[in-house]
């Protein structure tokens, strides 16, 4: 695969085999231009989480290259890896905030990669970082929440803190793992909208793992379908018809699911498979 200058992230032959023998990723190749929001869909266990964790090496890939602006993250030594991680903001399914720290400390923890040990331990953050944190909290709708403890917030509010923590890293790409899986349908849409707006504002690329096909179609610029560790679809949301969904998820009555989507969009279950089950 030829790496071109405007590719932000290029995955080449990425594979992951867990010690248990499970092959979570098989020879995955993908190129992401700067500023593009790509949604990754696929059944549970298809390797979506493994894929984004191989990008910042929270999971070590078994084989393949992860090129961030041409630099192979998979080969970097520890200090280089930490510098590369600063450029990749991550947002998690269950928010993964440090529960007993304040909202402000959680947001500022996004700057840890830029700070030495003592300054971060004593919470002596540079004034610029603190100003940026307040501005981001304001932007995600949490002005005035700075000194609340993270475990005092609701799910939607926690995910907003998670978004602010990822953005304060000044990343070039967001790695987003099931951001709405624990949220209600309305909050899910608000969070997805916020993530996509912020990506557009700051020119960020994003890989978003998502279970909810309808939500993916609503917000994605590009959809990649993963099944059993392999890419089985890569295209614009408009191409995502019943035959493609069958290729990704397996045999199911997709037309029935689609009609319901249009009827009561707000009460849609997260998983198209479960929806069809409920109707059967």
């Amino acid at each position: 695969m030829q790496v071109s200058a405007d590719d932000l992230l290029v995955l080449e032959g990425l594979s992951k085999r867990y010690p248990t023998g499970d092959r979570a990723l098989r020879d995955v190749s993908l190129r992401l231009p700067a500023g593009q929001v790509t949604m990754l869909i696929g059944p549970s266990g298809a390797g979506k989480s493994t894929l984004i964790r191989c990008v910042n090496r929270l999971v070590e890939p078994t084989a393949g290259r992860v090129l961030l602006r041409g630099e192979d993250v998979a080969r970097l030594p520890a200090s280089g890896l930490r510098r590369a991680r600063r450029r990749m903001g991550m947002i998690f399914q269950e928010y993964a905030l440090v529960e007993r720290l304040t909202v402000m400390e959680n947001v500022l923890s996004g700057r840890l990669g830029y700070l030495d040990f003592w300054r971060s331990t004593l919470r002596r953050y540079p004034a610029d970082d603190i100003a940026a944190a307040f501005a981001l909290l304001e932007r995600v709708g949490l002005g005035g929440f700075a000194d609340k403890r993270a475990d005092a917030l609701s799910g939607g509010q926690r995910q907003r803190v998670g978004i602010a923590r990822a953005l304060i890293q000044s990343p070039e790409i967001l790695l987003v793992d099931e951001p709405t899986a624990s949220l209600d349908p309305k909050t899910s849409r608000q969070i997805m909208r916020l993530i996509c707006e912020l990506c557009a504002e700051k020119g960020l690329a994003a890989i978003v793992n998502i279970h909810d096909v309808a939500l993916a179609k609503m917000f994605a610029q590009r959809i990649v379908g993963l099944r059993a560790g392999e890419i089985v679809f890569d295209g614009p949301p408009a191409d995502l018809g019943p035959d493609i969904l069958t290729r990704i998820y397996g045999e199911e009555d997709w037309t029935a699911a689609r009609e319901t989507d249009e009827d009561d969009a707000d009460e849609r279950p997260e998983d198209p498979l479960r929806l069809a089950e409920a109707r059967a």
Binding site: L58, R82, G113, L115, F117, R165
Partner: peptide, 21 residues
């Protein structure tokens, strides 16, 4: 909760910083 540790690691924090945060 390993998720909280993973989130701190993902920011590019060093090992001592991961311990503290």
């Amino acid at each position: 909760d390993p998720a909280q540790v993973e989130a701190i690691r993902a920011t590019g924090a060093t090992w001592p910083q991961i311990l503290v945060y």
